[in-house]
């Protein structure tokens, strides 16, 4: 496994060298063809504060919106990673918002109790958002730029791809503010 992943990584990094202006192998959608994130004004209750918050309240930040549920194994793996991303890139303007889709809220609460997320968690128990975002697997995460456009989508959470996820975040953070 370990032996296997390094050449892949090396290949990923060297492949991005071919693109002169950019270093990233990730599939960042160019601004021109990016779509605005849907439902930015929908207010959902936040786990940490019990306040109703919406995505547009964080406009100006790079937002990682992650759709998850307590019964989903890969979601479990992604939690520590999202906590560390939030901590690492907070000062650069990253906001991680994980939207919970459990239909039984108790299960979500038990999960959150165990995993103690270091990022914002919203409850969408009526599943208002995922359809229009185009969630096709669990978890699915969307990277939204400072202008509110969806610029990258990751389906699932794979340890072997975390450097790619992080590069995408770093790139969007570095994009200049307008």
């Amino acid at each position: 496994m370990i032996k296997h992943s390094k050449p892949i990584l090396a290949a990923a990094i060297s492949s991005c060298l071919l693109i002169s202006s950019s270093l990233w192998a990730t599939d960042i959608t160019p601004l021109a063809s990016a779509k605005a994130a849907p439902h930015q004004t929908v207010k959902l209750p936040e786990y940490q504060t019990n306040q109703n918050v919406s995505l547009d309240m964080e406009k100006g930040k790079v937002i990682l919106v992650d759709f998850w549920a307590s019964w989903c194994g890969p979601c479990r793996e992604s939690f520590p990673w999202m906590t560390s991303m939030q901590a690492k890139y907070k000062d650069q303007g990253l906001k991680v918002i994980a939207i919970n889709l459990d239909q039984e809220k108790d299960q979500a609460l038990d999960f959150l109790d165990e995993f103690k997320p270091g990022f914002s968690v919203l409850f969408d128990s009526q599943a208002e958002l995922p359809e229009d975002f185009g969630v096709i697997g669990m978890p699915t995460s969307f990277l939204i730029d400072r202008q509110g456009n969806i610029r990258a989508t990751h389906i699932g959470f794979h340890q072997k791809n975390i450097d790619e996820y992080e590069s995408a975040i770093a790139k969007l953070l570095a994009e200049k503010e307008e």
Binding site: W71, E104, A127
Partner: peptide, 11 residues
Amino acid sequence: VKPWERDVLAQ
């Protein structure tokens, strides 16, 4: 079902 409706099936 939708991907987020698999709670029961995930057991």
